[in-house]
Design a binder for these strands. Structure first.
Lengths: 247, 247
DNA sequence: ATAATAGTGTCTGTCAGACACTATATC
DNA sequence: GATATAGTGTCTGACAGACACTATTAT
């Protein structure tokens, strides 16, 4: 053992995180889905103190035996009973007073799940619901902690991410989808109408975004021509990106 | 006091973060600058355990009386004696084993500072240096903790952010600058050559990116025509973004 | 037939890449 | 004059917005 290793061992023997003010670490999950032609987010009604009874993001304390990502994945599974393909760190929120239990830092995550028609009631949660983001972000909708601020950031992230990341298909439950299915996701998340022919041209021009399966499927609503079925092609970034609007 | 408030008060009286495993929270700063025509990052040589003597990102523990942003600003001031206009949260790193002192979560920040020709020697740091990012990211360069991973993410953020955020002028120390000065920043950060005429057209086509001051300044190197001086115009986003390369 | 949806083709305007050309400075 | 940098103008190709047109289905 070198001298350096020895002094480090001594240092660590005397070091204890308990000598400093206690802090907590949580993860909060922004779970988005498309439901009834709306972009919705999963909320749980708090079954314990503090903020008892208020709607809040699912989440919980990080275990010291796991990473933040693992904590997020675990909470998602515990509270929604689903795993998902897209789970990404959003931002970390930490300042005095955001939680009455003490100085608690929360790392927020964003997840996309396909349309889960029969939503979910986790273990810890007394109640769970899918709420449209428009409703949640309304001034009259009361949320626990600083979760409204977090959701606002998360919605911005989802809308922005759709421009350059091939993630829209993650909202579709099926492996094979039509370009109308795909366009529908963009229209709902962005709250805009897209011209079908232009959308089609853009999507097909991106190499490996979608791959034709050769199969066709007929429209679900009323009449109409049968549509080609595609599957995701594995591309990692959409370049040049979609243009959401002319600012 | 309602019944709900009463039970919450009781709950909080019995709640103590000390009842859970201790965790720590730090901030780490990626301070970028342009120095000797290179994109460089500020590193400090650790003057204490653990990782004694290794190069590391400046940073330190978060105080429970301040927010994460405030902690980052404070550390930046303590370690570099400069405040800066751009300080943005990057990502939070937390998993078992990343710090020998215990489960310590680190929130990384990215800061841009203008060319500080005479770099900096903070209080806590035994030694400070500006190192080119190419050198730092080389396999042979040894860094403390997981800081190489953090720097890799930070460099990606800087290069990406330059495409759509009007931040290049923050690397220039002066209030007034020529389009060559500005182009130089893009070329250094991206490691590419840009065609001056196209760069000029792009910059001037973005409303309120730069504003002509009417003044002119002659080139610093050798001969050449005097260049128009501009100042930043306050625009918040560059749309459509710069195209860094055709992928 | 009519309505509804899918898919093709084309015109147009914007904008980036490339580069020739002019203007103004030092040496 | 040579050389270096700043700035103007223009050709071209890629691509998005708009929309007319054809194709295929249900009612």
């Amino acid at each position: 053992m070198t001298e350096l290793e020895q002094t480090e061992t001594e240092f660590l023997a005397n070091y204890n995180l308990r000598d400093y003010p206690a802090i907590g670490a949580t993860v909060d999950l922004n779970v988005f889905t498309i439901h009834e032609n709306q972009l919705k987010i999963l909320l749980i009604q708090r079954g314990g103190h503090p903020e008892f009874g208020k709607w809040a993001l699912p989440g919980g304390f990080v275990d010291v035996k796991e990473s933040l990502d693992e904590a997020a994945k675990r909470e998602l599974l515990e509270e929604t009973k689903i795993s998902c393909d897209f789970l990404e760190q959003l931002k970390t929120y930490g300042y005095p007073g955001r939680d009455k239990r003490g100085y608690i830092i929360s790392t927020a995550y964003v997840a996309f799940v396909p349309n889960l028609d029969d939503p979910v009631a986790g273990d810890d949660a007394s109640n769970a619901a899918l709420v449209s983001v428009d409703e949640v972000l309304d001034d009259n909708f009361d949320l626990a902690f600083d979760h409204k601020m977090i959701i606002r950031d998360a919605v911005d992230r989802v809308r922005g991410k759709l421009e350059y990341a091939p993630i829209a298909h993650l909202f579709i439950g099926k492996d094979e989808f039509t370009l109308s299915d795909l366009r529908n996701i963009y229209e709902i998340v962005w709250g805009t109408k897209l011209i079908p022919s232009n959308f089609r041209r853009k999507v097909l021009s991106i190499e490996n975004f979608v791959i034709s399966t050769g199969k066709r499927r007929q429209s679900e609503i009323v009449g109409g021509r049968t549509a080609d079925l595609y599957k995701f092609g594995g591309v990692e970034i959409i370049y040049p990106p979609f243009r959401k609007e002319d600012i």
